[in-house]
Structure formats: structure tokens, C-alpha cells
Design a protein around this nucleic acid. Structure first.
Lengths: 348, 348
DNA sequence: CTGAAAGCGCTTACAG
DNA sequence: CTGAAAGCGCTTACAG
């Protein structure tokens, strides 16, 4: 015996929905949907009616319903180490402007340099059904990339560019960039080097940088002594204390290569305090070209990276990969630019 | 005449879904859902079975399905002017860490100081069904707040705290903070003031700052001459050129109040170039306490704002508002801290 | 504690 | 060009 289907009461969201727009415009729900998503398939007149009804009711389409039916969310995800560094903030800024222009919203995740946290963030994004993901660097648990591939979510690895990477990369070649920095210092006659770097763990970019330094020096028959290669937190304070440590020795390097501008600026500030001046007493280089680096005296020789551009290119590549299904994003190499400034000069 | 219901073929996402977990665990879909969302309502044994099945199948729940059924997305939105400023990046960073800890992901939108773009971002977020929104400042089109209220989406206004605001605010009192800066300079004997500020349009925070300066000076029977109140882009370059302009006059101010650290640092750099030194020749103040400001020589007198804390408090308040329906977030006032450093001293 | 099934708000294959 | 209706993958009111 079959009775009436039981009427379950579930409180809807109480918000205007597509069906009400359809009623008001005197069309089917299919037509309302098409009017917005495939306007060319709807007659001019009906389209107008639908738009007016939607506007009058102030209808905002429910993305969950749409996502469920269409299996597209119009959400992209970005995972970066931290926003507390202007270089990543700039990348996100560039990405967000492009995504926003194409109707995509951006989910943001920070790993704080913890690979497990990065994996958690990626999983959370996959659960949200992101259409694509951008992630800084390739130093992540293999499960992360497996999860992306098995779900066919297009992704790009940003910031670092690595010709031999299994992943589509959008960024610059850290190794080559630091070879170029060494090149510059060698050409100025420097033969005695020191290095101050941020931590290498879980950070393929920084390891590539240091390797670039070591390899280029080796090509010139040179090397950095172990006690002249200091590694620690990416802070001005570490730059300052490392500088003091290195220059306090009787046998001083003439050139100091820093892993980034922040460290180099810390070193320069300490130098002033102890009466040393670049480029007279020593040369020093940074990396990033922070806004302050070209204003600070002495102005800092450093490598300029267009991080906004990396973000924009990454977003563009992902949008294309989303549009053409099964299209793996093309790698893009961004060329850094050596900014030669006051902090480097001829070796004494 | 009724026939068999037509079988429509729609390609699903091809991903593992809850139903398959239910099958494997030999339970109903309802039980799988409960095992994850209301574990106490499921027996220990069944729960185990469900978890194992889910794990074995590597099931990631589809957020769109969940959102549609539960009318909750576990997504929060944040709208800020720009990420290219470390103060907002810090706020987002604090917010994201708290949200992430509670299983929420963060949608990010930047208005680039354009009210219409802010409104667009807010609408996009509402369409995504965000459970709550944080938005910097209260200088937004009324439609924005109306949209939030009519959809009962809890929100907070961040960064600025304003006792008389119709919105729940989480931030600090810009007006009072700048009165305090003036107070400090007055106590050092300064009577002749200049000001260099970022643009006031669509920016309630900056207007409040300048009003704080003007009002406190008025209380002391003082005022800033019009040609000593310069307003322009929030860049070091503008700080530098404004400084030159102001100090090039025969009648110089003894104290310069800047709208933020960036502007003040630009001014200090230019000062050095023309052989002027703070606090001997003039005093200068910033606002924000950027990382560089305490290292730069002379160290900069400025107001420290804990932007990470603002972000964390905003996220916490929103999570509470989401949990207790119809609970309007409580306003929170963050106290800024005046950092008196080398750049301010007794008036000549 | 557990299950059968309606319902969340859209899109889209199918039929006309 | 348009509509009737199935289906997207979950949650939850109801019944037991």
C-alpha cells in the first residue's frame, strides 16, 4: 500500500531562489539558468524578462547548488608559506586580481613552512571543490600532488621555476639567479666570500640558491668556509648578528651573499653601528628587491623578482587549464633582474 | 499513461562519494554522515567501521553537497583594501590561522580602495554562501551592509574601532591614537607642526587620524597651516618629496606627523640626503610600527598596532556569531601602543 | 542507535 | 528556443 509521499519540512535558507525568478518571469527554471550561463541560447526578449525578474527579486545564485549540479565551483585555491612576507603577499595580490576579473574567488591557505599544514590546507581546498590550485614550491608531501592528480584538479607550482620538475612551474630559477649574483661579485674582483641564509628545510627554493652560490664559486676554484656560511631565521636580527660574527673574525670575507633582502638589510644596519661601510669595507647582496632596498643608504644590490607577475601568470595558466579540460598548464619562466646598486663595489 | 521514469545519464564527478562509504561500511548514508558530524550519536563500533571505510576509499566529502543540505559552508570571507601593505597582510594572517584551526577556509577579496570593487567582492562571497564576513573599515556603499543584514550573514568591521558605529567593530581608535601622538609632541615642547598623510577618500581611518591631529592641536590653541598639510600617495617617495617641500620653506615646522611609517621613513631617508637629522633638527612620527621602523636609524617613534591580533579577534568573534545564531559579534577595542624612539625629541 | 527518503538550489540531457 | 524533470552529493526530520 502506498500512501502519499510524506512531506518533510526543511527550512530552506529563506533566500530568494532561482525558482522564484522563474515564476516571476513566467519561464522554466532551465530558462533562467540558461539566460545567465548560456545567454546566446535564449531569445532576447525572454532574456530581458529573466534579468528584470532576477534584479527585482535581488536574486543571488546559490553557489552550492550550482557547484553540485555543474561540478564547477569557480573557486581557486592558493597555498603559500606565509603572508607575513611581502613577496608572497604580492604574489597573492596578483593572482587575486586576475581571478576576480574572471569571476573566480580565491581560497587562501598558509602552511607556515610546515609541510603537514600545507597538506591539510590542500585537502580542505579539495573538499571545497576548488577548480584549481596554485602552491608555492615543490617541497611538499607526495600525497599532496597525488591527491591533486587523482582528482584531476589542475595545479601549478609557483615562485620557483625548475626545468626538470615533474610539475608545471611558474616562477624563476633560484639556482641561476644566485649564480648570477656570484658572477657579479667575482667580476668585481672578490675572492673571499661569506653567506647568510634563511633555513633550508622544506624549502627547495633556498637550497637551490645556496647551491647556485657554491657551484659558481667552485667553478672559479673558490669555496665558502664552513664558519662563514651562517644559516638561521629570516630576520633582520639574524642578519645583524651574523654580520657581527663574520666581520669580528680577523680573516674577513670581502663579499657577503645574503639569502634575501631582509637579512642583508639587518647586516647593513649593524655594519653602520660598528663603523663599517659598504662598498668601501665590504660588499653585500640581497634578494627580492623589497621596496625599502632601493631607498636605504647604501642602496642594496639585489635581484628583482616581479612577484605580482608570477601571481598573474599563475592565475592565467590555471584559468586556461580549467577552460580546456585535461590541459596541463604550460610552465612559465620569469626572468629576475639584477639591480646593481651602492652596496657592491670592487674588492679592496 | 505513465512509463518508467527516464534514466538520465549525468557524469558524476567520478570521485568517491558518501554513498560508497556507506556501502562498504554496511550502513546507511545517514549513519556515515552522523559518524562524522555528530559522532556521539553513533555507536563506537559502527563509527570505527565507517571511519575505516572512509579512509580505505580515501573519501573527501563534497562541500557543495554538504553546504546545500546543511546551509552552512564553513567558508568565511575577508575583504581588505590591499595585500600590498603588511598591516593588512598581517591581519589576514591572524584571521586565517584561527579559521583554519576551526575547519573554516578563508575567501580573500581586495577592493584596492575602490568601494564598488569591494561591493562586487562582497556579493561574490555571498553567492559562495560564506558563513560570515570581515571587512576593513566602514566606508562602504550602504548596499553592502544591507546585503549582509538581509541575508543574516554575521560580519565585523575590522581595523578601525569606532564607539558610535552602527557596526560591530574590531580594531583601534584612529582618532584617539593620533591625539596621543600629538600629545607626545606637545609634551616635548613642539608648537609648530606639519603633516604628511595618505589619501582621505573612501578611508574613514585616515580621516579619523587627521581629525585627531587637528582637534588635539586646536585644544592647545594651535593649527597646521594649509601648506604644511600635504596629502598624497602612501609611498616613501611621497614622504620624501613632501619633506623636502616642507623643510625647504624658511619657516619650518619642528615636528612632522606622518599618516604611517612608510611615509615617515621616506621623509627620514630624504632628510639624511639633505643633511638634516632627527631629533636634532626636527621630530617626526609614523604609524604602524613596521618591522624596519625599530631598526632604521634614527629609530622611528610610532604607534604599534597588533594587526595579527585584530585578525585573530575578528575570526574568533565571527566563529562565535556563526555558532550562536542571531548573535551579533561584540565589538573589541585593541589598544595601540606608542613607541617612543629616537626620531622625536625636545623642540629646538 | 539506525535507516529510508525527502530536500537543499541549482544544471543539463533529453524531448519537443 | 523552451520546458519537464532527473540528478549533483550531501544532511536531517521522521519513524522505529
Amino acid at each position: 500500500m502506498e500512501g502519499e509521499p510524506i512531506r518533510r519540512t526543511r527550512n530552506g535558507s529563506g533566500r530568494v531562489k532561482l525558482q522564484e525568478v522563474a515564476q516571476k518571469a513566467n519561464v522554466s527554471t532551465a530558462t533562467v539558468s540558461r539566460a545567465f550561463n548560456e545567454p546566446s541560447k535564449v531569445s532576447e526578449e525572454v532574456r530581458q524578462r529573466v534579468f528584470e525578474a532576477a534584479h527585482a527579486l535581488n536574486w543571488i545564485p546559490n553557489a552550492a547548488g550550482r557547484a553540485l549540479a555543474s561540478r564547477k565551483t569557480q573557486i581557486a585555491g592558493a597555498i603559500i608559506p606565509t603572508l607575513d612576507n611581502e613577496i608572497f603577499a604580492n604574489q597573492i595580490s596578483g593572482m587575486q586580481s586576475v581571478f576576480s576579473k574572471h569571476g573566480f574567488t580565491l581560497l587562501l591557505g598558509c602552511s607556515n613552512y610546515d609541510p603537514q599544514e600545507g597538506l591539510r590546507q590542500a585537502r580542505a581546498m579539495l573538499a571545497r571543490g576548488v577548480d584549481a590550485i596554485a602552491i608555492v614550491g615543490e617541497d611538499h608531501p607526495p600525497e599532496l600532488f597525488e591527491a591533486l592528480r587523482s582528482r584531476h584538479v589542475p595545479y601549478v607550482v609557483t615562485y620557483a621555476f625548475n626545468r626538470t620538475s615533474p610539475h608545471p612551474c611558474i616562477g624563476f630559477d633560484n639556482y641561476a639567479a644566485f649564480r648570477e649574483i656570484v658572477e657579479h661579485l667575482l667580476s668585481l674582483g672578490h675572492r673571499s666570500f661569506g653567506a647568510i641564509f634563511q633555513p633550508l628545510d622544506n624549502n627547495d627554493r633556498v637550497r637551490a640558491r645556496l647551491k647556485g652560490v657554491v657551484d659558481r664559486l667552485k667553478d672559479a676554484g673558490l669555496a665558502i668556509a664552513e664558519d662563514r656560511c651562517l644559516i638561521g631565521p629570516s630576520t633582520m636580527d639574524f642578519g645583524a648578528s651574523s654580520f657581527l660574527h663574520m666581520m669580528g673574525q680577523t680573516d674577513r670575507p670581502t663579499a657577503i651573499i645574503c639569502g634575501n633582502d631582509n637579512i642583508a638589510l639587518g647586516a647593513l644596519l649593524r655594519a653602520k653601528e660598528i663603523g663599517l661601510d659598504a662598498p668601501t669595507d665590504f660588499s653585500i647582496t640581497g634578494f627580492d628587491n623589497l621596496a625599502i632596498s632601493s631607498r636605504f643608504r647604501p642602496t642594496l644590490t639585489t635581484m628583482m623578482i616581479d612577484n605580482q607577475e608570477i601571481g598573474r601568470r599563475a592565475a592565467t595558466a590555471l584559468l586556461q587549464a580549467i577552460a580546456e579540460r585535461n590541459h596541463v598548464p604550460d610552465p612559465v619562466e620569469i626572468k629576475p633582474e639584477l639591480k646593481i646598486r651602492q652596496s657592491t663595489g670592487p674588492a679592496p
